[in-house]
Design a protein around this nucleic acid. Sequence first.
DNA 1: TACCCGCATGGTT
DNA 2: TAACCATGCGGGT
Length: 818
Amino acid sequence: MSAPPAPSKSCYNSHCTELRPDRPRKGWRLRTGEFAELCDRCASLYEEGRFCETFHSKASGWRDCESCGKTASPAWPASLFFHASSPDRLKDHPVKLNQLAGSGPVPWRQAPSLFNSCIPRPELHPRSPYEVDGSINTDRLLPRERYAPLDFSERLMNGSVKQGPIEKYENGHAALRTEEHQSCFMNNPQHSVSLKEEPSTPQFGLATSYALTNETNGHLGVAGPQFRPAPPPTLAKHFYGNMLHEINSPVENQIRNGRPRGDVRGKNQLLPRYWPRITDQELQQISGDSNSVITPLFEKMLSASDAGKVGRLVLPKKCAEAYFPPISQPEGLPLKVQDAKGSEWTFQFRFWPNNNSRMYVLEGVTPCIQSMQLQAGDIVTFSRLEPEGKLIMGFRKASAALPSDQENEAGKTVNGVPGQVGEAADPSSWSKVDKSGYVAKDAPGAKISLSRKRKNSTLGLKNKRLRIDSEDLIELKLTWEEAQGLLRPPPDHAPSIVVIEGFEFEEYEDAPVLGKPTIFATDNGGEKIQWVQCEDCLKWRKVPVDSPLPSKWTCAENKWDPERSSCSAAQELTSEELEDLLRSSNSAASKKLKAPKEETAEALEGLDTLANLAILGEEGDGTQTSSSQATTKHPRHRPGCSCIVCIQPPSGKGPKHKQTCTCNVCLTVKRRFKTLMMRREKRQSEKEAEGSGKKQQDQVMPMPDKSLEEDLSQSNSSPSLRKVTGHEGSDEDLNKMKTSDSPFRGQIDLNIQPEREDEMSPGSDSGSGTLIKPLDDATEGYLVQGFPPSDENRNPSGDNATGSGHQEAKVPPPSANG
DNA sequence: TACCCGCATGGTT
DNA sequence: TAACCATGCGGGT
């Protein structure tokens, strides 16, 4: 199908009758090394990616490509839609999705044969956007990549996977183009489907109905049951540009949206966060043994509102318009959705007018969400079961969720075990997450499972926005202990141990390596080794102690032991040995962060207030709790932020903490307090050394041996605060706290942002008398008042954490700040 | 008073 | 900067 070179004056595209201009535009590189010379139109189209980009070893240039579905002819068929997906037709293409995905190297690939040599319109192209020429690339992707749709973007970037046209899946018109060919859309724009707005469909049905009834707003999503949805390739600018080009045409707008709305622009592709990341395994789980085919549509991480009592699940607009039946009235229509267990739910799919736009919601989802035991941060997935056309709602629990690209491309889960649809509800399945043994769920502070702990999570209406990015999820899921375990010193760097409040932290001079958690041990020969667990088979393999390992490690990467470089190889460890190993590992890890009891007790003696403040779930034994409680984040906070605001739930939520509690909140409060003091001392020392303005500084910067309460009250609180302080926590207590700092002076607060050191240092603004910057304010207030920052305290910008909080705590706002 | 409903607001992308 | 969307909020029941 390769196109022979055109006559010199003709466009290289043999399908094109245009003459190329005197100054032809360049197309693809020819075998000769030169470039195809194209007419303007074809060049434009080429640049827009309309033509096959896949390298076909046996063909050159421009052609109708069965493999990628692109065409030599810059035209589109009039009918892009899935003709009544009759079972017969489906039989002709028995491409059960999981089979398909399992048989090819690319998860989203569809069977090329499905598309014949039709000329798909790129935007409505039924093909997956990620394509690899099967003729040459079938082995380019490792099998396991099939289960890592996340990697697509990366692969795209790497160029190992080509991105096909977008939108089509959004449109659901992932049509099987079987009949019509060569109808040139460009030549016959009127071929486009009807533009009229389709009345609401009473019941969500098979896509074809939409297609055939021309509701083209993408509500044809049911079509193309054989295919997994095409994650919108926003990463591929080339195609994106292409898409934009098309979308910007009025016709396209209508085709895509099914309603003559002019606001459809280039953002019609789903945001990456909504790309379905459902794995084949999950699909298999949903489809079971039936012959049904699952078409993943999109997924969404539940917000607090979604998971709250309101029972409204906000649907991403694009997703709603692409995959759900069109609705013209705000009342919408009832939508039957089947969950992974097979239960059928009926939601009201509707929208609210919003800023000249629409806000789509599913109403009445509470029972379903509760049934799935979903919480904010968990992910619901929407798929379509074909040929029934049934909507399927799956889910992934947050702790097992594949982070979305936009959220975290670093890894899949804490330990790389992806959640399974429908699995999370089964507590037994949760142990899977812990199979690595690294994150033992019964280890102190290792309760990464959000689900059970979050049953009482405070996701009510009063909560401010809860955004849980994947990074945040990790933050929530990981205890410090776990995080420490994940961090490895950079090569050739030995970590130094920082002791903070009796807790040892490894500190790295260079950026630490986020690596696979391993278990270090000594083999029989006394040689230090480490054990690492294969992500795929979960077997433990022995590797050299100094081997940096990726966070996702499989047996195949066991280059040190070829005999065990395959998952089929037996595990070297006996189950007993493994058990011992894991036990010792966990206990060692636990010890690492476990404070010496006496010391902690002493340090905490004055922390009644702290104990009373804390709001995270109290562990009966006072051991470390996870931060899995939903927290209200500063909108400006970034993933990884561990400030007190971000790691604790809103005020008044959850039981109070014990004095000896070592949860993250308490630890952070203590640590920040300590840091504050250290900084003050340091600053003071420096100033003393400078020997200038000492007297004045003494007023501003209390001497280290002054009482803390004096510090605090002097820093930014009114005298009344002092009274409160005296009541809630004695001076003596506070002094004790401070005294407990002494062994750690000069240590580093892991959360300090060096660039903000000055800003946050109490003495940095001595001139104004505003001594303490927000975070410290919050910390101090927290410590002194015995109140957790309330919602109101949580200044989104984090720049006045004490203000209203103090007021709420019956303490006048800090005069120094205001 | 609690809940529902619908819209408005404003932060985020 | 506009669109999106999470959530707040007021009115109604």
